[in-house]
Design a protein around this nucleic acid. Structure first.
Length: 504
RNA sequence: GCGCCUCUAGCUCAACUGGCAGAGCAACGGACUCUUAAUCCGCAGGUUCGGGGUUCAAGUCCCCGGAGGCGCACCA
């Protein structure tokens, strides 16, 4: 991108870049503390503020600058004879960072201001901030140069601030209920805990391929086996799949595990967690999402997958049906059933294609087929089902939870049938994890676990239609020229240890 | 991965059925003693996403490629 010429403009070139600036008050604090000041009145109090210049109006012997910091805006008021280097102050550019000290006054026209005595240029903006009225609205520019977007579009900044508050509350909420936060590996020798295709990476010294985790699930349950009765992790997981307004290849997942509990306990926990966060972040449990209202006030409806399919299609299905019968019903509903699918997968497919997207109000969809739930415990009253539920809000899955399968022999058998699916070309089927089986042999108490997509939750609470709006730097295709991958960085032909020389 | 749509100055956008690529803001030079998207005068700014084709003539029509948005598929 072309650099903006600075011409005769006040510049840092040839000057010493400041190492620090002592800020005595934020813009918001100044506004609050001096709100009672009358037009033309001078407070007698001196403050130092700092921020970015959003607007500048040099006018003869006066200079008016709108300075924005992380929480608000304040005007700098430069007056000839009072402000140091007034001419230079007026030549600062939109986007420059400046620190200024002076008396808090309200101008005759009523604008609360810092009447500058001294000031210092903290950093200069070589590219500017876009259109001063319309800012930057090009979606691609907003994501590729998010730092610019954050200055120019207040909603973008507000969303990320709210996301941070949401996660902060979430931590406190869980900690208040006896959960402790843990961190488990992101580099996995076996990508387990979910059905998804992983990213592959390589460790040079070990000369081993490793996977970026698709879920922290198995390690978290090993911590339960290790005696951590209530654990959670909030962390990034990676799935090598398509990108859409609801999918980012790396996303943030909450997983929690509670010993001595079953999936019914988590139903209560889930609806309380989401409704409490909604109240905390938006002030209400009646969310506005798009042009509709989503009422997350507990209790949420509980219904089995089979009841919901029946409601939405008028067709009664069951996992006990012969596969041929299920195929016939599925094709009647326009749902193709692939070879190699069992009845459970067929039922799940019918549910997902005909029913899930039509569920608006929160529903806890209960009792998934065991066949498609390889880590969930068999239902206590139906052998073909698992004690599993998903929380569906606004037609999308928000949470997935189950009573955990603790029997190592049963788990081995489930892994083996997954491996059989893999052998038949299902790349998302799970791999057998011997370390996990070995851990189960040391004894997992009755435990229930749940995963919640944090980005999806943020979308619901912050009324975002695209997942990218709640992620600071969403994954984009590398733009020509500005991206340097390993191959183009000149390291492609450099092997093993030699590479360290270049990367240090 | 497939389908539809979009891409013009730093930013936001114009340019009729193909007929000299423009404006506002930003930037640059200047004026201005309380501004609020200040105002005024002046100046400059382009590989119209890239490549090829049709045509006397292409921002505009056709083909190939790139990036983005939306939908589908996959998933959370």
């Amino acid at each position: 991108m072309e650099l903006r010429g600075r011409g005769g403009m006040t510049s840092l070139t040839g000057k010493e870049r400041p190492y620090r600036f002592e800020v005595s008050a934020s813009a918001a604090e100044v506004c609050k503390r001096f709100s009672g000041l009358e037009p033309g009145e001078e407070s007698g109090a001196s403050v130092s503020v700092a921020g970015r210049i959003m607007l500048s109006r040099p006018q003869g012997r006066y200079v008016f600058i709108q300075l924005k910091d992380s929480g608000g805006s304040i005007q700098l008021f430069g007056v000839e004879g009072v402000a140091k280097d007034l001419k230079e102050l007026g030549r600062l550019s939109l986007g420059d960072w400046v620190g200024a000290t002076g008396e808090v006054v309200r101008t005759r026209r009523g604008e609360l201001s810092v009447k500058v005595t001294t000031w210092v240029l903290l950093a200069e903006s070589r590219h500017g901030l876009g259109d001063k009225w319309k800012g930057v609205s090009d979606v691609e520019l907003r994501y590729r140069r998010r730092e610019l977007d954050l200055w120019v579009n207040d909603e973008s900044r507000a969303r990320l601030v709210a996301r941070s508050a949401m996660i902060s509350h979430l931590r406190r909420w869980l900690e208040g209920r006896g959960f402790i936060e843990v961190e488990t590996p992101i580099l996995h020798p076996v990508a387990g805990g979910a059905s998804a295709r992983p990213f592959v990476t390589h460790h040079n010294s070990l000369d081993a391929d490793l996977y970026l985790r698709i879920a922290p699930e198995l390690y978290l349950k090993r911590l339960v086996i290790g005696g951590f009765e209530r654990v959670f992790e909030i962390g990034r997981v990676f799935r090598n799949e398509g990108i859409s307004p609801r999918h980012n290849p790396e996303f943030t997942m909450l997983e929690l595990y509670q010993a001595y509990a079953d999936y019914r306990d988590l139903m209560v926990l889930c609806e309380q967690l989401v409704s409490d966060l909604a109240r905390e972040i938006t002030g209400s449990t009646r969310l506005v999402y798009g042009d509709r209202v989503l009422d997350v006030t507990p209790p949420w409806r509980r219904a089995t997958m089979f009841e919901l399919i029946s409601e939405h299609t008028g067709v009664d299905v069951s996992v006990e049906m012969p596969l041929s019968e299920l195929r016939r019903l599925a094709s009647g509903l326009g749902v193709p059933v692939q070879d190699g699918w069992g009845p459970g997968k067929a039922v799940l497919e019918i549910y997902e294609k005909t029913t899930e997207a039509n569920l608006w109000d929160p529903v806890l969809v209960c009792d998934y087929p065991k066949e498609v739930s390889p880590l969930a415990r068999e239902h206590r009253s139906a052998a073909a089902l698992a004690e599993r539920f998903e929380a569906v809000l606004a037609g999308r899955e928000l949470a997935n939870a189950f009573s955990e399968l603790a029997d190592p022999d049963e788990q081995r058998a489930r892994f083996e049938s997954q491996m059989a699916l893999r052998a038949h070309g299902d790349e998302e089927a799970m791999e057998l994890d011997e370390d996990y089986l070995r851990a189960l042999e040391d004894g997992l108490p009755p435990t229930a676990g749940m995963g919640i997509g944090i980005d999806r939750l943020a979308m619901l609470l912050l009324n975002a239609q695209s997942i990218r709006e709640v992620i600071a730097f969403p994954t984009l295709r590398p733009a020509g020229g500005s991206f340097r991958g390993p191959a183009s960085a000149g390291l492609a032909g450099v092997s093993g240890d030699d590479r360290e020389i270049f990367e240090q």
